[in-house]
Each structure stands twice: as structure tokens, then as C-alpha cells.
Design a protein around this nucleic acid. Structure first.
Lengths: 342, 342
DNA sequence: TTGAAAGCGCTAACAT
DNA sequence: ATGTTAGCGCTTTCAA
């Protein structure tokens, strides 16, 4: 590869001049000289080294995206994918490249050596850090700014973007109550994610607001994955006890799993049981059925996350930005009035 | 950020020693000294700079992925996504980060300044370079090795991975012929992609092998996108002339578009018209229907592409690797025997 | 077993 | 308007 020296020699100027031509400033170069330099660059097929430049002005125009969870393949996950799409789109528009890291691999390797903050990214987007992870504390001790996606929680010392999990859960349970349901089960997410507790809180708040007594037997813990929703539904409907007329699953995948289980048990959704989730993600397992859900506008969320981290990067002093993404309750085919028992 | 100097000062050794501790060699360091250095690194929360290291040994452990086409969002594209998944998975396993570039943006900006080969990636994976693009020629003049995904074509001077487009098309058309079809339309892809011509060639070869005369009126040109398949099907079936009993679409998206159109026209698939595609990608537009298609094993293709580029990166002298990915014809619900006219 | 110092390719203050 | 040169943070040869 040709270096700036080669170009300088070839065009008979100093490296400084070449550099100024390269960057269109900050110094002005005589047009004739400039032309000579440009010609030399072309002839030598010269491309400035990102490494050398980065070493100087500490800026590489790349943002890192870390998926901390051991998600098999982030791109196949209905939550990650739209967010990532939004990130890639926004970053591209802003001329930033996107650096993907599968965090759990890097973390397990040597937890105190996060390659993604070794200068190859100007800033980081961290997906769903689970409760008790070691990355976030480590990240606080270094200079690359970062934004947490989906699990900012109550920590006021980190920048984050999320929906208001309590509110969206409250509203969607309210939606079920509005249809006349009083016996509503909740399939909550894994407890190592803060959102699980938040959505559960929204659920209890909605019940309380409607004067419906809370029944702990109706709250079952899953893990945000489809099979867990399936298993919980089977457990709930195959064992003895009074059945719920509706299920609020903490996300769409669990809701879809539940619907599959219910159908296998000969129950109709929503005639026999209503089901609602959160995410408005795609769910190929129940073709033709539109799940009642809370739309997090995940792509938009990814785009906003990029603008946030860019702001942090461009900001002189360290800052904390907290964003709550607006959401919408989207009625689908899976919620109806409760069945009146004979 | 602490530098290697800070660590050296703090532990009372030279920067050289710190470097050797950092890399576990090539020189051996006395255990006591090493311990002191490690302690200092920990205390200072030291992380070596990727830029500075890269500047020396020209290796950053990152592979670049360039999507040249103006795909809205690569992650939402049923061809790109599984390949990308495979890439991310394989790269992660090999401890490489993945750098995503939306090539058409970078290219349009200043076609002679490809940031993705400025040293921030050790090697590149290039998606579907269209015929006549300026990137590939430019890439040949620089040192970063690259592998072309999906459009290696006949150029023997570039490394590439693809399926045998002629063969897969020939086989799938053979599959249709096997059902008794003799009047088979072909919706071909955009002509700026080599695969379009290849698949079309496979189509004509299959016809020839079966002694079926080629009818140019049955070959229509789309662009690999769903709407084009829809439009072509409407055109074909709404205008006068003898209708085909089957359609071979050059990819699944066009096939799906065609099926939608046929259904709107009151035609049943496969009773009235059989339809086959290529890709085995997901297609939410025809829920419940399994499209007869040729499986390219796209995730696998992405994984193999990564191992290929890693081989090129690790190879001392420049090499060219050509890989043909195995494929399978996957029978679905959309192909049946032709309707016998009264 | 360790230190000193010369680069890697570029930028930008300091000269002229 | 342009050249000189001292770094950026690290690796590695050459010395000790």
C-alpha cells in the first residue's frame, strides 16, 4: 500500500501538504499543487490508513453494537433484528460503519478485556444487559460513550433508551380488562432482565386500578422465548384450578407459544382464551393471525439509539441521556370478550 | 485512557516490557516483573489501543461486509439476512468482529475512496456486486483480500462463493417438467445480476433436454423483488395468448408476488398454475403455503464465506478461492400436475 | 532479564 | 504557500 510519504515524494511536496489536500484543510493549498498531489494519489492508488488517522484524532467513524445475551444469532431474533435494522440504516445515513460484537463470547473470554472499547469504535450500543452483568460496570471505567438499549432500568448513571415497560403493560392489561376479562394470567419474562419486573408491575397496577384481586397462581415465569410460552400455557391449562379467560404474555414470542399450546388443547383464540403480547414482532408460527400487542417501534428505537450515541460522541463533556420511546397498543385477532360460562 | 507509558511508569519498567507482558511474548518476562505490570494495568484500567496495534502489525481482527446494492435495509432482505446471520455466527466463533457497510452509500459518496479497505478490516465480503459496478475493479488494486458472495460469475481473478445457478435452475425446471408441465414461464431477475442470466440458461437447458420448444413470449424480466413477480403474473395472465401451466420464478420473492397475483385473479396454486422459486427464504405474504424452491442454504453460505476470507487473510501470497455451495430442491405445496383442459 | 529507540502512517503545531 | 518535525500508542530490533 502506498503511504502519504510515497505521495509526497511523487508529487514533490511535503507530507504535510498531502495531508492538507487529503482533508481539504485546515490549511489552504495552491490549486496547481493540489492537482499534482491528487494526481499522485490516483496514480499510486493511495488510500489513507484508518489506523494512522484514528491514532491521531481518536475518531474512526464506527459505532459498536454489542449483543450481550447468548442469542444464537441476533439477526434471527424478532426483537434484535428490527432494532439492528434501524441502527444500520441510521448509521449508514450518518456515514458511520457498524461493528457487530457478540458480547457473550467476548465477555466469557476474558471479562476484563472488552475489545469493543479499545478504540475501534467511537461509541457503543449495548443490547439488553442482564441483571448482574459485568460489562456495564467495566464500561463505566472507560471513555467510549455507550447507550443501553432496552434495559436502562433505574440506573441514572447510564444513557439508555427503552419504552416505558410499566406503562405499556398497564395499558395492554387495561385493554384486556376493557373487554370484560377479570381473570388474567401473566407470563412474565426471565428475571435477569429488568423489563420482566417492570411489565409485571404494569400488570398488577392495571389489576389494582380495576379492583381485580391479584392471584399469584396466575403469574408464571418464562424466559421471553417461544417454547416457554408454550410450556406455561400447557401447564396452566392442563392442571386443575380455575382457568384464566385471558393471558398477557410479556412478549410476543411467549404469546405465540401460548397460542400454539392453546390450539393444540382444542381451545380457540380468542373465543375461549384471549392472548396479548408486547413487541409487534413478526411471528411465523401463527400464520394469518394478527397478535394483539404493544408496538415498541423497534426500528425507530434503533435509529434513535444511534442519534443518541452520536450526540454523546460529539459532546465535549460526558453526559447522560435517557429516552423513552413512544409505543402503541395494536389490537389484533387474539383478544375478544371472555366466554360466559353456562 | 491510560497508555502503555503510564503502565510502564507505574510499574517501574520500560514500555517494551509492558508490551511483552501484554502479548505473552515474544520475549519472556520475569514472573515478579510480570505481576507488577499486570497489577499496574489493572489499577489503571488499561486497555491497549486497537489503532496503535493495528498500525504496527496490520491486523485488526475485523471483517468487513459490504452490501453494494441499494437494499433498503439489508437485515430485512430475505436473501441477505440468513447469509448475514451465518457470517456473524462464524465470525464470532473465530473472534472476528463484523463491520457492516452499506456499499452504495459509500460508493456514491466518492467512488474512489472505499473506506472499507482503509485498514479497518482485514478482509471483505462483498454481496452481489452488480454487473458494471466500479467497486470490484477498485478492490483488485488494493491489498485487503475479498470474497464475492452470490455473483462470482466467470471472472477467474476474484474469489467467490455461490450456488451453481445454472444447475439449480435446470433442476427445478426439470422438477416442473417431471410433473408434466410443458408450457413453463420464466420470470427472470434483473439483468444487472449475473445470476439472472445463469438461471435463465438453466431454464432453457432444461427445456431443451426435454425437447420442449423455447417460447420467448414466456420469459419476462423482473427485478428479484416481490412486486415485480406480482406485476409480471398479472401481465401474463391478463393479456391474450396461450397461458403457461407453470411459472419458474428466478427467486422466491418474485414467486410469492406471482402467487398473490394469481390468487387475486381467481386462480388456484397449484391446481391452475404451478409456481416454483429459488432461495427457500421466508415469505410472510403467503402464510401457510410452502413454496417449492431450491434451497441455497444461505446461512451455511455465509459461514463458508467467512472461512474463505479468513483463509485469504492468513495466506502468505494472494490466492483465489472459488466455492460452489451445494443446494437442494425442496418440494412444497405450490407445484402439482398441469390442469387438463376440457 | 530488561531498556532505549526507531518506526508504523498520519496530523498539526511551528517554522520559513 | 509550503516544509519540518514532534507526536498519537504500540511493537520490536538492537544494545546492555
Amino acid at each position: 500500500m502506498a503511504t502519504i510519504r510515497d505521495v509526497a515524494t511523487r508529487s514533490g511536496v511535503s507530507t504535510a501538504t498531502v495531508s492538507y489536500v487529503l482533508n481539504n484543510g485546515p490549511r489552504t493549498v495552491r490549486p496547481r499543487t493540489q492537482a499534482r498531489v491528487l494526481a499522485a494519489m490516483r496514480e499510486l492508488n493511495y488510500h489513507p490508513s484508518a489506523m494512522a488517522r484514528g491514532l491521531n484524532h481518536k475518531r474512526v467513524n464506527s459505532i459498536g453494537v454489542v449483543t450481550l445475551h447468548s442469542v444464537q444469532s441476533p439477526l434471527e431474533n424478532p426483537y434484535y433484528r428490527p432494532v439492528l435494522s434501524g441502527i444500520v440504516d441510521a448509521a449508514t445515513r450518518l456515514r458511520q460503519s457498524v461493528n457487530l460484537f457478540n458480547g457473550n463470547v467476548w465477555e466469557s473470554e476474558s471479562s476484563d478485556f472488552p475489545v469493543f472499547c479499545d478504540g475501534r469504535c467511537d461509541g457503543l450500543l449495548i443490547f439488553l444487559p442482564y441483571v448482574g452483568n459485568t460489562l456495564i460496570p467495566a464500561l463505566k471505567n472507560q471513555t467510549a460513550p455507550f447507550v443501553i438499549i432496552g434495559e436502562g432500568g433505574t440506573d441514572p448513571t447510564v444513557s439508555s433508551i427503552d419504552i416505558d415497560n410499566v406503562a405499556v403493560a398497564r395499558e395492554i392489561v387495561g385493554h384486556l380488562i376493557g373487554f370484560g376479562h377479570r381473570r388474567i394470567a401473566h407470563f412474565q419474562g426471565a428475571d435477569y432482565l429488568l423489563s420482566s419486573a417492570d411489565r409485571r408491575l404494569g400488570y398488577t397496577e392495571a389489576l389494582a386500578a380495576a379492583g381485580i384481586p391479584f392471584d399469584p397462581a396466575l403469574v408464571l415465569t418464562g424466559d421471553y422465548e417461544t417454547p416457554s410460552g408454550y410450556d406455561l400455557a400447557r401447564t396452566l391449562f392442563e392442571t386443575a384450578g380455575e382457568k384464566p379467560t385471558a393471558i398477557f404474555a410479556a412478549n410476543d414470542r411467549m404469546a405465540v407459544g401460548a397460542i400454539k399450546a392453546l390450539r393444540e388443547l382444542g381451545l380457540d383464540v380468542p373465543r375461549d382464551v384471549s392472548v396479548a403480547g408486547i413487541d409487534c414482532s413478526s411471528h411465523p408460527d401463527i400464520p394469518g393471525t394478527r397478535l394483539t400487542s404493544g408496538d415498541q417501534h423497534l426500528m425507530q428505537l434503533g435509529e434513535t439509539a444511534v442519534t443518541m450515541v452520536m450526540e454523546l460522541i460529539n459532546s465535549a463533556e460526558p453526559r447522560i441521556i435517557k429516552t423513552l420511546q413512544p409505543y402503541d397498543i395494536v389490537p389484533g385477532d387474539t383478544v375478544g370478550p371472555p366466554l360466559i360460562r353456562a
